Simulated assay, not measured.
Amino acid sequence: MKKIFTLSLIVCNVFCFSQIAMSSGTQTNRWTFGGGLGIGFGSNSYFNLQVSPRVGYKITEQLEGGIIGNVSWQSSNYYKSTMVGVGPFANYYFARSFFVGANLQQYFINSKEKFSGYKYNTDETALYLGGGYMQNIGNNAFIQFGIMYNVLWQDRVSIFSTGFVPSIGVVVGL
């Protein structure tokens, strides 16, 4: 049931963004907008909600730069945490279906254990490099599928369990 709910939210998100893009007609400016939405469920009443808005500017038809944000709320039977990230990104598009990119994020993390009341505050910098595939979903809107790797990630030092991050998002204005 949880998988069906998650899949239906993703599909709804894609259709909402595609309707906005189709109604806007041909875009003459160079600004792009988009982002991603993530929901996760797990054992011990684990729940995760993540929102990642982005604003970009087409420097050329193939090169885009901008700023991306990230807010994530996590909760389980044992802890509760909030993570906020912000930073610049750059994407290079080729063959109108593929992209490579870089994304520098500065994360600020606040966590609290529910039983002991112990609070943990930290920050971490991540530099993601990667790429992926884009599919046109109407006029100037695309859904992007990609994978990125945090080249600054260090095992046993990072708050993240791995350096690899899959990504799915929608961009309007390309």
Rank of each mutant, 00 (worst) to 15 (best):
F41L: 12
L127Q: 07
D155V: 12
G130I: 09
Y118C: 07
G146N: 07
E113N: 15
K112T: 06
S76T: 09
F108T: 02
Q50H: 01
S81V: 02
Y79S: 11
G42P: 12
G38V: 01
T122N: 14
S45Y: 00
L37A: 13
R54Y: 05
A126E: 02
K58T: 03
V11L: 14
G35Y: 09
V172Q: 09
R156P: 02
M83S: 12
G87K: 09
Y78F: 12
R96D: 07
Y149V: 03
I168M: 15
N13D: 04
N44Y: 03
G40E: 11
M83T: 14
T162Q: 11
S161K: 10
F164L: 15
T125R: 12
I4N: 14
P88T: 11
Y46M: 11
V100H: 01
V165W: 01
F15L: 15
A102P: 01
G36M: 03
R96L: 02
G163D: 01
T125P: 01
N91K: 15
E124L: 05
W73I: 13
F160H: 08
S111M: 07
G69I: 01
Y93K: 08
Y78G: 06
M22P: 02
Y79L: 08
V170P: 08
A95L: 11
I10Y: 06
L37D: 10
Y120M: 08
Q27S: 08
I168E: 04
L104Y: 07
G169T: 00
Y92E: 03
P53M: 08
V55S: 13
F47H: 13
V157E: 10
N13R: 00
G34W: 03
C16Y: 15
N13C: 05
C12V: 14
N140I: 02
Q62N: 15
F94C: 07
Q62V: 12
L174W: 01
Y128Q: 04
Q50K: 12
N29S: 12
L127M: 09
W73T: 00
F160I: 04
N139M: 12
Q50P: 04
E124Y: 05
V100N: 00
K3A: 14
V55F: 14
G34Q: 10
L37C: 07
F94L: 09
L63Y: 10
G117Y: 03
L104W: 09
Q144E: 15
Q62E: 11
G101R: 00
S52D: 10
R54F: 06
V55P: 05
V14H: 06
